[in-house]
Amino acid sequence: MQVDELLKPFPIKEFHPFPRAMMGPGAHEMIGPEALKLGFKKTLIMTTGLRGTDIVHKISESCKYHGLEVVVFDQVESNPKDYNVMDAVSLYNSEKCDSFISIGGGSAHDACKGARISVAHDGRSINEFEGFNKSENPKNPPHIAVSTTAGTGSETSWAYVITDTTTDPDKPHKYVAFDDASVTSLAIDDPVLYYDCPVAFTAQCGFDVLAHASEPYVSRLNFQPSLGNALHAIRLTNRHLREATWNPTELAGREGMMYAQYIAAQAFN
């Protein structure tokens, strides 16, 4: 069937949940107090490691200062693999953690979302949850997502991307799972954390924002609540991406892209 034929039987369009968010310079300093409010006691930090920065160390130490126990899993890969998720689940269970903090871009957030879904289903393989709202347990561990790039918007969307390595090793299957239960408990978007993002990554993430904003604006779904956010995200990217790329420690450019990526993700959500 053609796309237009598929859309006709579905006049009802769905608005998916967004998490609470704290946005702006200094927001990352609130992670410890906010984690306590959410009931965190022993948390698993999931990250790629963020080589060349001290962001993970600073956030870990801040959490400890506020009385939290911290376990770090820093083996998340780009385009996160199913075994990244399951290794994190194993560590979460063996360390008897009760919560998650993801630090990084979309890879860290997506892997963490997947880990939460798996934990809520007694450690079942994350690959079982490909598709739409495949999870059966809506309650999973609380999750604070701390963004260090202005790109994917995973911290505010209901989607996560995982690579299934049990398929063809030369062309592994990369899928998107959509699940309302995967939405984070709290999104932290602090443009100060973007200062260390390399030039090439900053630019590439900015074009990711542009794609995220453009697609819902021209989508045949024509979902009216998305159109304003989509168009404004395009304008913000046009206004701020060059500044963020070439003057990486100027707050205005970084903050502009922070908002652009966030509302672009809400538009495609």
Rank of each mutant, 00 (worst) to 15 (best):
G105L: 04
T202M: 04
R51K: 13
R116D: 05
E5P: 11
I234M: 15
N140L: 10
N84Y: 08
V192D: 13
S62G: 13
D208P: 03
V183W: 03
I263K: 00
P9R: 00
I126E: 00
I31G: 03
I144V: 03
V119L: 12
I31F: 01
A159G: 14
T167A: 09
F18G: 14
R20A: 11
H57W: 13
A260G: 09
D82F: 00
A177F: 05
V3D: 08
K8E: 14
A88M: 11
V176R: 11
T237A: 08
H212M: 08
P172R: 05
Q266A: 14
L251Q: 09
S147M: 15
G49L: 05
I188L: 09
Q204P: 03
A203Q: 07
R220A: 13
A21F: 06
E243K: 15
G131N: 01
T43A: 13
D110M: 10
I31C: 06
G153S: 08
L241E: 00
M22V: 13
F10P: 10
C112Y: 01
L231C: 11
G32E: 02
L210M: 10
T249P: 10
T167V: 04
P141N: 00
T184H: 01
H16A: 14
G253D: 03
A213P: 02
I117D: 04
D189G: 12
D54V: 06
D122I: 05
V161G: 03
S102I: 02
A233N: 09
P216S: 09
R220H: 11
K58P: 03
K171R: 04
T184L: 02
F268T: 02
S102T: 06
M22Y: 06
T184Y: 06
F223I: 06
D122C: 12
F207Y: 11
S78H: 15
N127A: 12
F201R: 13
C63T: 07
A200Y: 12
L231Q: 13
A203K: 11
V72Q: 10
T53S: 13
G32N: 00
G52V: 04
A213N: 02
E14G: 14
A21R: 07
H212N: 07
G26A: 09
